[in-house]
């Protein structure tokens, strides 16, 4: 009911996304807290130090950061009615998001072959559940972006629908920020 006047003058959908993000903070906060509280409590290896590939993950972190930049440009393009720009930048978000996911799939496979599974130890369980749920969020985001891209290709994403992109962008940036925290906590500070 965005058409109706709202008390704060903020579109309700945008406010809803902010409210939802607050909730998501608690979700990832609980996962990260658990990861930290179980850090070093595994009875058997592999340990983070043995297995985490920081260079590779730094690249995929950079990829995800760039996708946020593309998201900003996509929103601007939609708002200004720049259809070509919208398609290009939405496409870039999809590709970069997809690349990040591909990196995660590669990483998970590598870890699996090196003996780190969900069941292997507490590190495996907390690591895969934390990064896996983040990956699931990225996946939802990529599907959302593909949807917007298809809408744009069909000419359904004019400036009047820029709120759709803005809300999706909020979600995307949030997922990105969460990754920065995870990258810092899991990979950098061991």
């Amino acid at each position: 009911m965005d058409a109706h006047a709202t008390t704060f003058g903020v579109p309700s959908r945008k406010m809803a996304m902010w409210v939802f993000i607050a909730s998501e903070c608690m979700f990832f906060g609980s996962l990260i807290a658990t990861y930290l509280s179980y850090e070093g409590k595994s009875l058997v290896g592999p340990t983070p130090r043995e297995i985490l590939n920081i260079p590779l993950t730094s690249v995929s972190t950079f990829v995800l950061l760039m996708s946020s930049l593309a998201m900003v440009l996509a929103l601007e393009a939609v708002q200004t009615g720049n259809r070509r720009g919208a398609r290009m930048w939405l496409g870039a978000v999809v590709v970069l998001g997809g690349l990040f996911l591909a990196g995660q799939v590669y990483e998970f496979r590598e870890f699996y072959h090196e003996g780190l599974t969900l069941q292997q130890n507490l590190f495996g369980a907390t690591f895969f559940v934390l990064t896996g749920f983040h990956g699931a969020h990225v996946t939802v985001g990529v599907i959302w972006m593909v949807t917007l891209l298809v809408m744009s290709l069909r000419g359904q994403l004019g400036p009047e629908r820029s709120l759709d992109v803005e809300v999706a962008g909020l979600y995307w940036h949030f997922v990105d920020v969460v990754w920065i925290v995870i990258f810092t906590v899991v990979y950098l500070i061991q």
């Binding site: 409210v19 607050a22 909730s23 998501e24 608690m26 979700f27 906060g29 609980s30 996962l31 658990t34 969900l118 069941q119 130890n121 507490l122 495996g124 369980a125 907390t126 559940v129 749920f133």
Partner: peptide, 25 residues
């Protein structure tokens, strides 16, 4: 509700993984 349900959801996810996938949370 917004802030309290996510922690219990996480607790349930761990329990679910313990029961369905053999983790040891």
């Amino acid at each position: 509700m917004l802030l309290a349900f996510p922690p219990i959801t996480v607790a349930f996810i761990f329990l679910m993984f313990d029961r369905f996938f053999g983790t040891h949370f």
